[in-house]
Amino acid sequence: MNIFRFLGDISHLSAIIILLLKIWKSRSCAGISGKSQLLFAIVFTTRYLDLFTNFISFYNTSMKVVYVASSYATVWMIYSKFKATYDGNHDTFRVEFLIVPTAILSFLVNHDFTPLEILWTFSIYLESVAILPQLFMVSKTGEAETITSHYLFALGIYRTLYLFNWIWRYQFEEFFDLIAIVAGLVQTVLYCDFFYLYITKVLKGKKLSLPA
């Protein structure tokens, strides 16, 4: 474990909690893409299938449990508990265009052609594009609530920090996972536009509004 990975995990965890609290407290999922949250639930499910077979550490196992549980809770709140506030008309990204290519790619490019490894690879590829429905929805509605932009910032920063974690691990642990690194780069690049808006607008107290 290194400081970058730890801060990355904390950032990821806080993003998940910010979203959970935003929906639960405001009893509304307005402006939130249910499709992205569905994709995140798939990402965690396919990535953590080794939850019971491969014990790394208490930290690792407990974080996995929290991620999986909170992603399902978020999907449940959006599609069930507060579905009356779900803005389906603006959450129209075609997720099949994300799931199919990443599934095919995980069969073609992976570290090991075994079910668990292919599912892990699919999860890595899918995570890199899972935020697209949410970013698409923000661009369609032209704006995002400030709390939603904090959620997106924390979520984007987590994988950016992981990039530094991989530099660190390459330097000091001879660890190198090209699949995770390339997908992490793609994921971070997708946030660049949002990072620019967040830093130039939200941090100055303005509302996040995209040029419609």
């Binding site: 990821h12 080794d50 491969n54 690792n60 996995k64 991620y67 090991d112 490894e117 660890f175 996972d177």
Partner: peptide
């Protein structure tokens, strides 16, 4: 490749 089936990152 990294510990195949032994991914230690979240």
């Amino acid at each position: 490749p990294p510990g195949v089936g032994k991914h230690d990152e979240l």
